[in-house]
């Protein structure tokens, strides 16, 4: 009769009832641990804050950080370890960063890491590439049964894809100003990071900056929606990764680009990722 109910049901199925390979979730889990270590491991070495007034809190934080992320990486009690890591990183962003005014811990790239870790705890990230998986396979072998399938509910990945959309959409909204779209804000960045206080003399630079600004904004709006459209997704994934690669080499984004690239695994069809891995390992398209 009307299209509305079926769209809602499809949306609900997409969000909450999709089942698929757990390898994407596991890869995201592993990538996130390395990104967390890249960002924080050095700062949380126990001696750094040991003698400060908040030393005990930082030492406890460091111990929790290393223990939780190690378990998360090797995949032992994986869901618990990932949730534990999410709590630790969340406390770093909101309590240590927000309340104790450790401002660098509240930046966009650190918030994104915390959010991604929390969302990763909502995925079946321990069902692949983990000690949990190895133990499950061994148990199955000992019992003479087939190993449990690497399949789980993908609602956590759906949330990650929405997080990507939100970042692109609101990032584009923030840039939708005359100053940005005219290329002037781009010129500010160019001068701040590269040229210093001398405006570029060549006229083509202004044209290039204008084109870069408009392209960035258009691409961000497109990515916010297009990553969810199967037909255009492959092209947009390539375009998005290229955008983040440019950000990575041109401006100080810390772990932001790498985290975004890692989260792209959440928008790619999980079974397709599984099949590609099987293919890479010479085991054909189906597992």
């Amino acid at each position: 009769m009307s299209q509305q109910p079926s769209v809602l049901v499809r949306l609900c199925n997409w969000a909450l009832h999709s089942e698929g390979s757990t390898r994407s979730s596991a890869l995201i889990r592993i990538c996130l641990v390395f990104l967390l270590w890249a960002r924080w491991a050095n700062e949380l070495v126990l001696f750094r804050e040991f003698a400060t007034p908040d030393g005990l809190a930082y030492v406890l934080l460091g111990i929790n950080f290393y223990a939780a992320t190690t378990l998360m990486l090797i995949g032992l009690w994986t869901r618990f370890a990932t949730a534990w890591t999410a709590v630790v990183v969340g406390s770093m962003v909101f309590y240590f960063g927000g309340s104790l005014a450790r401002v660098p811990w509240t930046h966009h790239h650190t918030y994104l890491l915390a959010a991604a870790t929390a969302l990763c705890a909502c995925t079946p990230c321990g069902k692949s590439y983990s000690l949990d998986r190895l133990l499950a396979v061994r148990r199955a072998e000992a019992a003479g049964t087939t190993p449990p399938p690497e399949v789980g509910n993908l609602w956590g990945l759906r949330l990650m894809s929405l997080q990507l959309s939100a970042i692109y959409f609101w990032g584009a909204v923030d840039k939708t100003t005359v100053a940005f779209l005219s290329g002037e804000r781009m010129e500010h960045y160019l001068m701040w990071f590269y040229l210093g206080s001398d405006r570029p003399a060549a006229g083509w630079v202004s044209a290039l900056l204008l084109a870069a600004a408009v392209t960035t904004v258009l691409l961000e709006y497109t990515l916010s929606v297009g990553l969810h459209i199967r037909r255009v997704r492959p092209y947009l994934v390539v375009a998005g990764l290229a955008l983040h690669a440019l950000f990575y080499v041109l401006v100080p984004v810390y772990t932001f680009s790498a985290t975004m690239a890692c989260l792209y695994l959440a928008v790619v069809d999980a079974d397709r990722v599984h099949a590609l891995i099987e293919q890479m390992q010479g085991r054909g398209r189906a597992s």
Partner: peptide, 28 residues
């Protein structure tokens, strides 16, 4: 995730719980 940024980016209400996505807004 989808509506939280509105607080800062539309209504100019700042909260540490509602993250705006305004990367490099202050740079330069």
């Amino acid at each position: 995730m989808l509506l939280g940024p509105m607080a800062t980016q539309v209504f100019d209400h700042h909260s540490k719980w509602l993250r705006p996505w305004q990367m490099f807004r202050d740079t330069g």
